[in-house]
Structures are given as C-alpha cells and as structure tokens.
C-alpha cells in the first residue's frame, strides 16, 4: 500500500504548501509537523541566522529517520553542516553520525553499509551527506565510486552554491554571474563565468542509479516525499537539496525559504526526480516569475542591477532558466493548480 499523496492536498486552507495543519489527519501531515519529530539536528547548533542547510538537513533526515523507523546512521562531509553542528564539546546530532573528511563522505557511508551488511543489520539505513563543495567538487570521486558500485547509500547534497564556511569561495555548483570571494564582480564577465559548473544530479543520473531527485527547502512535502521514495529503494540514491545561504548570497536571513521558492518558480532550479537514469517526474512551476525576482534580493548578484547594470547578463540567466523550463517541462499543461 502506498503512502497517502501528501503533495496534493486540497481544500484545507493551506493545502499542500504549509508544513502541517490542525485540520489534517495526522498521516497527512508532514514529518516536520509532528510534535514528536526526531529533530535529527537539534537546537544550539551554530549555523548562521536563517541557514537553509540546517533546515534542509533536518527536513531530510527527519524524513529518513521516520522512513527507517529511527534506524539511520549518517556520514557527513566536512563543511558548514559539520562545523556548525559539532563544535566540541557539543553536538546537535541526535542520530548516530560520523564525520571523517571533506572528500570521503560517500566512501565512509559505503563502509558503514558494508559493516552493517556484514553484521546482518538490515534494519539500519545509511545516509551520506555534505554540502556542494564536499559533494560536487572534493568528494566527487568517492560519490561516483559509491554510485557505480551500487552501494546501499542515500546521499544527500545540500547545495548552497559555494564554500560558505571558509569565506564564500566558488564551487562547481556556483551559478553564473554570482559574486564569490574567488569570482569577483569585475571585468567583462563579472562574477562566476558562464559555462562553468556542473549538474551533479544529471551526472548522478548518468550512473543509472535507482533514484535521483532535486528538491528545495521551500517545498517541504516534496522533499519529504522524495526522501521517503528514496528510502523505499536500495542501492545508491541521490537527492540534491537547494538550500539558500544568507551569508554567502547576501540575502536577508528571513528570505531563505522565499529564495528557494523563487529559484524553483523562475526555473533557475528545476525540481525533478529520476528513476534508473530517466526523469520520472517534475515539480511544475505554480506561478512563473522572471529570474530578476530571484536575483534581486541577493547581494551576490547586485552588480547586475546597479547603474547601468547588466541586463545582458540577466537575459543570459533568464535564457538558462527558460532552457530548464523547456528541458524538464516545468510549466503546467493546463491550469490545474494544487
């Protein structure tokens, strides 16, 4: 029996979009609505105000913990998430958790999975996780190795589009035109240059692993459902979670979820899932907006909007978003909202 579809709830004021709702049956509520949710990462962590990664990690892991009836072990790459959650003598984790290195979280997860298998612990599930730096750059070899071997690991990448904890340097996930400490907003092509960077989800799909998905912290139910779907499968699975970073992006701490929503609604960040290397579903844009709506609130793109500004660059970014929309079919065919 499949779980109730929690991404399409109608006629309940906030329907599918809010975290929960007193009017919903408990099984229709998101994991995050539960009074007794795991809080895999608990209070007292040292993430910046409005940290999208802290939020995304709790969303994803609590969902995984629920799906595995509490039996989850996580291996974490070096990065913001690791640093802010475990400064001695305090840890915010409430699940068994290990941090080894920046570039080896997928392999450590493999080792855990192998150990569990050797010990006959089929009940315990393994999560590998890291930021975009630890995943798409430093740990990419280990990630690919974990994929191709078919190891039983769900890997979660929290993508805040740069090395934020070390002072906002560019990563392979930094978007074009974004200013970072290593891609200054100067010259003919200010900020990160176009044509660089990679899509880890698409590369993951090229491994033809059982499950690949993207999600954002703005669509909690979608994220939870993807984690649940991934947890129903075995073998390597990859979920790429878009997590805005107020510090690195120069955005208001209160805008974290809003920016994630705008990234999806503008087509900048396509939200989809793929099974065995084939796209099997996309999250449609509900109210399409121009990319400018997404770019403007972020100081890392401020050089595009000064005087005289760079409308040509904004147009290139819009073209990229339009390509995403066409490529993934992000627009509703008919206006059936949800």
């Amino acid at each position: 029996m499949s779980a109730p579809d929690k991404t399409r709830i109608r006629f309940y004021q906030t329907g599918s979009f809010a975290v929960g709702g007193r009017l919903l049956d408990p099984e229709q509520r998101s994991v995050q609505a539960e009074g007794e949710r795991t809080n895999a990462i608990t209070c007292g962590h040292r993430a910046c105000q409005g940290c999208g990664e802290a939020l995304g990690a709790r969303y994803a892991l609590d969902a995984a913990v629920r799906a595995a009836q509490g039996r989850v072990i996580a291996a974490n790459a070096t990065g913001c998430l690791e640093v802010f959650s475990t400064p001695y003598p305090e840890t915010s984790w409430q699940i068994p958790w290990v941090h080894s290195l920046f570039g080896n979280a997928p392999a450590v997860a493999t080792g855990i999975a192998a150990a569990l298998k050797a010990k006959g612990r089929e009940d315990v599930r393994v999560i590998g996780q890291g930021g975009d730096g630890g995943t798409v750059d430093i740990g990419f070899g280990c990630l690919s190795g974990m994929f191709e071997r078919g190891d039983d690991v769900l890997y979660l990448c929290y993508d805040n589009e740069g090395y934020m904890n070390t002072g906002v340097q560019r990563s392979g996930a930094t978007p074009p035109a974004a200013r970072t400490a290593t891609t200054q907003a100067v010259g003919a092509e200010p900020g990160n240059v176009f044509g660089q960077g990679k899509s880890a989800p698409l590369i993951a799909m090229a491994h033809e692993i059982p499950y690949v998905a993207t999600a954002t912290v703005a669509e909690l139910r979608d994220l939870e459902q993807k984690v649940e779907a991934a947890m129903e499968l075995h073998g390597p699975r990859y979920i790429h979670v878009f997590v805005p970073c107020p510090l690195g992006w120069g955005s208001a701490s209160s805008d974290t979820i809003r920016l994630a929503r705008l990234a999806k609604e503008t087509g900048i960040f396509p939200v989809f899932e793929a099974r065995d290397g084939v796209v099997s579903g996309v999250s449609k844009i509900r109210r399409r907006l121009p990319v400018e709506e997404y770019l403007r609130p972020q100081r890392r793109f401020a050089h595009l909007f000064g005087d005289p500004g760079r409308p040509d660059v904004v147009a290139r970014i819009q073209a990229g978003a339009d390509r995403n929309i066409a490529r993934f079919g992000l627009l509703e065919d008919e206006g059936e909202g949800r």
Binding site: T14, A18, R22, R29, S30, Q32, A47, G50, T256
Partner: peptide, 9 residues
C-alpha cells in the same frame, strides 16, 4: 498550519 514550527532552522 505548523509552518512556524516546521520552518525554523
């Protein structure tokens, strides 16, 4: 709606 409860990082 549980939003505040859910969205707090």
């Amino acid at each position: 709606c549980d939003n505040c409860y859910g969205v707090c990082p």
